[in-house]
Computed example of a mutant assay.
Amino acid sequence: MKAKVISYGLLLVVTVIAYLIGNQFPLIGHSFAAIVLGMIVANTGLNRLYDARQMKKVSSLMLKVGVVLLGFTLSFDLLSTTALRAVPIILSVITGAFVTAFVVGKKLGVSVKSRWLIGAGTAICGGSAIAAVAPIIEADEDDLTYAISTIFIYNLLALVLFPILARVFGLSDIAYGVFAGTAINDTSSVVAAGYQFSPLAGDTATLVKMVRTLMIVPTSLVAIYWRWQQEGKAQKASYSLAKIFPTFILFFIIAIVIANVFALPSTFTDSVKQLSRLALTFALAAVGMSVSFSELKKAGLKTIQLGGVTWSVVIVISLVMTQWLFG
């Protein structure tokens, strides 16, 4: 009990400080400040005061809560005019990521299962996609660790790289949101990079990312078919669709429907938006507090190379198509 009190107390302190920094310095933003402060705590000896695995659970839960609350503040217009228009980019990104992961991965000598994990993590939604695909293809623990570490390295790089690319190419708030939502791997980093740019970019990036995350389902079904082919039809693999489908997205959609069907008072939506931002800041602080630089160093060099090449292809596809469709 005492350990949990210390853990949550430290997380609360990091969240509050990050929130205050975000309010005082909008260019830094709540999200970026939360991740950086969390990482400082995690790698300066304070990590002995809490369980990093518990932080990962907290970050996952609070991220989902924050996204669902955000749904109450979004309009159908943003969904129809932006998120759905981004579907061709999402499909192109997924295709490019998997083709690159398998072709380049083979040349680098990376195992087939690692190629699956890097492809899924880069194409769809980072750790969540990796977690969904790993048990289907029966990935080894080392493959799983290397893939998640590799994806997270590039998630951190995205927080610095994407705002720079946006300004170099003169992307609007909407275009940047689409770019971030279709090209950054993990949801937490999409949220951080989006709101670091602007509130509209953050809303857009989150919504586009939710559409992209739904691609976990067809991707997992393809993985099931692949395993079925590998094992032979006599040993057909089975996997529960309930484990694949990200149920929080269903609540996110319900929240959007409620917000657009009923005339919610502005006082309610304003309060919910603040709660959503606080929950996301809380989640990202927990993400940072679960990052161990020593663990990241364990990622295999070939896996890191493959992740970098695959992500580079995703960035190019997303940037070119975003400028074409939203420029």
Rank of each mutant, 00 (worst) to 15 (best):
F197N: 11
V316K: 00
L144D: 04
I89K: 04
L301R: 13
D51L: 00
L241F: 12
V222K: 01
V5K: 11
S294V: 12
P265G: 10
A286M: 01
I151M: 07
G307W: 09
S318P: 08
I28W: 09
L275F: 15
A3G: 10
I90M: 06
M210A: 06
K243A: 12
A33D: 10
T204A: 12
L91V: 13
T213Y: 00
A237K: 14
T187N: 06
G307Y: 11
A279L: 02
A166M: 11
I253R: 05
F98W: 01
L84H: 03
K56A: 10
W311P: 08
G66V: 03
M55Q: 02
L165V: 13
K113C: 09
V16D: 12
W226C: 11
I256W: 09
F179K: 04
K64F: 02
V211D: 07
K243E: 13
T182Y: 07
F268M: 14
L207E: 01
V287C: 02
L306Q: 09
S312F: 15
Q24R: 14
Y8H: 09
S198I: 05
I90Q: 04
A134E: 13
T82R: 10
A242K: 15
S188A: 15
V287G: 02
A205I: 10
Q323E: 11
L264K: 05
S240L: 03
V313F: 04
R227S: 05
L61C: 02
I253Q: 06
A192S: 11
L27D: 15
D140R: 14
D203Q: 13
T95H: 00
T187H: 03
L278P: 07
V291M: 05
G29A: 05
G105S: 01
F72Q: 04
S220L: 03
N47I: 05
T81D: 15
L156T: 13
V309R: 03
K243G: 13
V261M: 14
G181R: 06
F25A: 12
G45C: 08
I304E: 04
V68N: 04
Y146V: 02
K106M: 10
K107P: 01
M62T: 08
G109C: 05
S128V: 06
T247C: 08
G45T: 09
S92A: 15
S111R: 11
A131N: 04
R167T: 15
Y8G: 04
L157T: 14
A129I: 02
K209R: 03
K64A: 13
S75W: 06
K209A: 08
V13G: 13
F76S: 11
A34R: 02
W311Y: 12
G307F: 12
L275K: 03
A193T: 15
V314K: 08
K4L: 13
T206Q: 02
K302S: 12
H30V: 14
K64D: 07
Y176I: 03
S312Y: 06
G119C: 04
A3Q: 15
N155M: 10
L144A: 00
F179C: 03
V291Y: 02
T269Q: 01
S128T: 12
L69R: 02
G9I: 09
S220I: 04
G22Y: 11
A120Q: 06
L49Q: 12
V87S: 11
A34S: 15
T150W: 01
M321H: 02
T303G: 11
K64V: 01
S266W: 07
A18M: 08
L264T: 02
L46Q: 12
L78K: 12
A83N: 05
S7L: 04
Y146Q: 11
G127V: 01
L11W: 10
A283G: 08
